[in-house]
Design a protein around this nucleic acid. Structure first.
Length: 331
DNA sequence: GTGATTTGACCACC
DNA sequence: GGTGGTCAAATCAC
């Protein structure tokens, strides 16, 4: 059963790889690109369905669940397959969005518009130009140049993230980047405060990526993470791209369904960032700066593929790198 | 000392 | 004027 899941994931990865290779050719063929994306999405969805099915089978057959996914389903009924599916879907949508961003970037910021997935150059440019504008504001006025742009509202990517069951449950699981908390605010109508994070390397790389984290009132075990802006700190060591594919595959092949559950516990993470990672914030008070433990195999693979900013054109190569000869099944 | 978090205040937007 | 997003001084942790 799990082999089917793995095979499905591999098929999806191959499709994604093909898509990336064809991106230059598909730049002027949105229909073809859309079709290709649909195929990849379906492939990942198929794998996800099988994985959930497999997980459910394990759950029903195992009376003494050793995995957190079982504990999760017991402790939080709302965190069922549907919710997980929705979360996976949202995460998936994010990665496809970023794939298009990548493509658009390499298309020399062409005027190509790909529906709602594209058209984010405006914000990017705005964000990158914001610095000087703010400096202008400082010069022109003694008051602090504080601007909440409408553009900032244009691109919001929401992801539902389950809260860890152990360790610091006040923090959402890590997402491959290091974040620095810069604010927290009580939100009207919400029981839980909203936390505001910016990229740790905002200054160093002028990275304008931000995220907001808020627990859902209905289900405190779920974080709603809203991402805004793009990471321009892709050359930093904070990118998930440093995660070797082998390790991700190991997560899948060795941990199978358990990986879905163990991701809920950052304390049980596999070591995805040798050397302790670069998250200086993570080492300070163990608070906001965070990283994924890397135990979301499918999601991580997708994120790794599409979120990777490690290189402008080798986000797939890091998954299917020449060094990755250990798994000849991947072609 | 350095860097992250906390938190009250400020400010833009509706 | 209310609300949400951000700033920045104070504080904390290493």
């Amino acid at each position: 059963m799990m082999e089917e899941v793995i095979n499905s994931i591999r098929r999806a990865c191959v499709l994604a790889q093909n898509l990336e290779q064809d991106l230059p050719n598909l730049a002027n063929q949105p229909a073809m690109m859309s079709l290709s994306i649909d195929q990849i999405t379906e492939a990942f969805s198929g794998a996800k369905e099988k994985m959930l099915q497999f997980s459910r089978q394990n759950q029903t057959s195992d009376e003494s669940p050793p995995t957190l996914v079982h504990e999760t389903t017991q402790l939080q009924p709302q965190m069922d397959a549907t919710l997980m599916q929705e979360w996976l879907r949202s995460s998936h949508a994010l990665t496809m969005d970023q794939l298009f961003q990548m493509h658009q970037f390499h298309a020399a910021r062409s005027t190509l518009q790909i529906g709602e997935m594209g058209g984010r150059d405006g914000e990017d440019n705005f964000e990158r130009n914001k610095g000087p504008e703010e400096m202008q504001g400082i010069n022109e006025s003694s008051s602090r140049p504080r601007r909440r742009s409408r553009e900032a509202n244009q691109e919001k990517r929401k992801v539902m993230v389950p809260a860890p069951q152990f360790g610091n449950t006040e923090m959402p699981p890590e997402d491959g980047f290091t974040w620095r908390k810069y604010g927290q605010k009580e939100i009207l109508g919400s029981k839980f405060p909203r936390s505001y994070y910016r990229c740790t390397h905002q200054k160093l790389y002028e990275c304008q990526a931000k995220k907001q984290v808020q627990r859902l009132d209905q289900n405190p075990n779920i974080f709603e993470v809203t991402y805004r802006g793009d990471h321009t700190c892709h050359m930093s060591s904070t990118a998930l791209s440093s995660v070797p594919l082998q390790q991700l595959l190991v997560d899948i092949t060795q941990n199978n369904s358990n990986t879905i559950s163990s991701q809920l516990s950052p304390t049980m993470n596999l070591s995805l960032h040798p050397g302790g990672g670069s998250g200086t914030a993570a080492s300070s008070g163990g608070a906001s700066a965070s990283r994924f433990g890397g135990d979301y195999p499918v999601v991580d693979m997708a994120d790794a593929m599409f979120n990777s900013r490690s290189s402008s054109n080798n986000s797939m190569e890091f998954l299917f790198s020449p060094e990755d000869k250990s798994d000849p099944k991947i072609e």
